[in-house]
Amino acid sequence: MTAKEYNISVDVYADSVYRFVLKNIKDPEKAKDIIQDTFEKLWVKAETVNYEKVKSYIFTTAYHTMIDYIRKDKKQTPLEDHMSYRHSTERQYSDLDEVLNKAIDLLPKIQKSLIILRDYEGYSYKEISDITELNESQVKVYIFRARKFLKDYIGTIETIL
């Protein structure tokens, strides 16, 4: 990949991969750091990365860099703490998107990442399995479970409202 192709990759994919990371970790500064790291890694490997597969390379690198960040971050809020929001009857939601976004944040991290890759980028199960290093069956099961959880959460909120 040439420098020109690298810079084109920045233009084309920086925003989408930033949205993917930001949606996962909810921290803009960390998301920026992860994107910086991701493109630095891409630049180092620029001569060996095929431009045709650069999107997959970027998302794979960003995903694993994000996992490393999450593991290093000792201050991450446990999932159980998030779950308390799920059944809060006092919370009001302005619209369905807000409810859905809240539900997304309550998903297990792996399911959340898979759903975002699937819906944001339209990746196939095969492509997601390549990025996350899961097999396709696992990817499919996780996504199905995530959908069911989201549906149930939406249904619960609708019932409450």
Partner: peptide, 22 residues
């Protein structure tokens, strides 16, 4: 409704800092 959509208004700031000279 379980299909989420990306907010296209969210963009990476200072994208030029990622670019490299040839």
């Amino acid at each position: 409704f379980t299909k989420i959509k990306a907010d296209k208004q969210i963009q990476f700031p200072n994208k030029h800092t990622l670019k490299k000279s040839a």
